[in-house]
C-alpha cells in the first residue's frame, strides 16, 4: 500500500482519537466547547457511553467507554507502526479471531457476574483487538488496491 495512503489513514485515525479526548483539550482551546455536543452525538452512535465505563482523568472524561477507547488507541498505535512497515501479509483470519477472544471472554464473564467490570481489563482487551484489527483493515485495503491496480 502506498505510503501516502498510510499517512492519510494515520491522520484520519488521529482525528478520530482526538475527538474521543475532546474534553481534555477544551480548557486549552475554549472554542472546542461548541463542538462538544456534536462530537458527543457522533460517538454516541458507536458507543453506549455509560458513565461508569468512561475513562476519567482529573475530572475529564473520554466520549467512549474504556473498551472502545482501547480499540481506537490500539488502532492508532498499529497504524503508526504500519507507517514504517512495507507490506502486511495475513493469509487468513485466525489472528483477528484470536485477538477478539480476550474481549469476548471479558464481556461474557463480567456480564454473567463472575467478576465486576474493570476499566483496565476492558481497555487492554480492546487495545489488543484494535491493534490487530487495523492491521487486517490495512491488509484488506492493500489487496483491494493491488486488484484495482491490476484491473486498470
Amino acid at each position: 500500500m502506498q505510503q501516502r495512503i498510510r499517512v492519510i489513514l494515520f491522520l484520519l485515525i488521529i482525528i478520530w482519537v482526538f475527538g474521543i479526548f475532546i474534553e481534555f483539550f477544551i480548557p486549552l482551546q475554549n472554542n472546542l466547547a461548541y463542538l462538544f455536543p456534536f462530537f458527543e452525538g457522533i460517538y454516541s452512535t458507536v458507543c453506549h457511553q455509560q458513565l461508569e465505563k468512561l475513562i476519567n482523568i482529573n475530572g475529564y472524561q473520554t466520549l467512549v467507554c474504556s473498551r472502545c477507547a482501547g480499540i481506537y488507541l490500539g488502532g492508532l498505535l498499529s497504524s503508526f507502526i504500519l507507517l514504517f512497515a512495507f507490506k502486511i501479509n495475513f493469509k487468513n483470519g485466525k489472528l483477528i479471531l484470536a485477538a477478539s477472544i480476550p474481549m469476548l471472554v471479558d464481556v461474557l464473564l463480567y456480564s454473567s457476574g463472575f467478576y465486576d467490570y474493570t476499566k483496565s481489563i476492558a481497555f487492554v482487551t480492546g487495545l489488543f483487538f484494535g491493534f490487530i484489527g487495523i492491521a487486517y483493515i490495512y491488509n484488506g485495503l492493500q489487496i483491494l488496491l493491488v486488484r484495482n491496480g491490476k484491473s486498470e
Binding site: G41, S44, V46, G93, I96, Y136, I137, G140, L144
Partner: peptide, 25 residues
C-alpha cells in the same frame, strides 16, 4: 449525518475484515 457517517465507515471496515475471516473459514 452522524449515523450515515459512522455507520458507513464502520460497515465498510466490518466488510473488509469479514471477507478475510469468511475466506479463511
Amino acid at each position: 449525518f452522524n449515523n450515515l457517517f459512522t455507520n458507513s465507515i464502520f460497515g465498510m471496515l466490518g466488510g473488509i475484515i469479514g471477507v478475510q475471516i469468511l475466506n479463511t473459514r
